[in-house]
Design a protein around this nucleic acid. Structure first.
Lengths: 122, 122
DNA sequence: ACTATACATTGATGCTCATCAATATGAAAT
DNA sequence: ATTTCATATTGATGAGCATCAATGTATAGT
């Protein structure tokens, strides 16, 4: 990161793609590393348990939930749920806030819409 | 499918979700089978090789390509490329048209935008 | 200090799947 | 018919990963 940060890169930099803009929305073909990065981000939500976690938190009243709220409706071990939550947090999809003994997880605003937009831009 | 097909299910039936429409876009939590189906569709594009196939075909002049055009830029075996193309066709993302000895693959219009919209609707 | 609760981590296990080499299918040309 | 080219399929192999049981860590309450 040797360049001075710009204030105008927000919308065009979401995908991490080059700034070329062919008509019709088609950019140049993805190289190996670009494809691997995008695929690994998609793999985060390409899992039934994590999809259910996302929809469970969304359906929650406060838009947040702790592990103990999530382990029972999923029918999975507490350790497994904790594992998936960690993946979602590291992917920037979930936030994690510790309050006393509890850890509350919530959706990062705009994360999933951004991912969906990248799929549509393919 | 015992019901008479309706002409008005188009937009609401894309996701295969129930027709409940809570304010804020949050639907009820996905059950196990719904989540598995959605995840398996996402797994199709959560692969670097298939992402590159999609972008390669998109970048093609005629928006279509045969296997021999794709196997070299990917640096993979012909059998492997054929394998991924089959998965993309079965997922409804690619079309396949046989012309003589060649098989031409192209994008199904609207397939990826629909998938991206479902991600955004999470 | 001790106990109980909430969450994280570790190690092991089994399944899914991407990839290759090899072979099969099928169509076109000579 | 035979050869050649394009694609599909099969079987094997190895890597990634979801899951569990067990254990570790930290916080709150008694």
């Amino acid at each position: 990161m040797s360049r001075t940060p710009s204030l105008t890169l927000a919308l065009t930099d979401i995908s991490g793609r080059a700034e070329t803009c062919e008509p019709g929305g088609a950019a140049a073909a993805l190289d190996r590393t670009e494809a691997e990065k995008f695929a690994s981000r998609l793999r985060v939500i390409a899992d039934p348990t994590r999809l259910r976690l996302i929809s469970l938190v969304s359906a929650q009243a406060n838009r947040e939930a702790c592990v103990c709220d999530l382990t029972e409706p999923l029918g999975l071990t507490q350790g497994t749920v904790s594992h998936h939550l960690k993946i979602l947090v590291e992917a920037g999809i979930f936030t994690r806030e510790q309050r006393g003994t509890w850890a509350y997880f919530g959706l990062v605003p705009g994360a999933l819409p951004a991912l969906g937009a990248e799929v549509q831009a393919l």
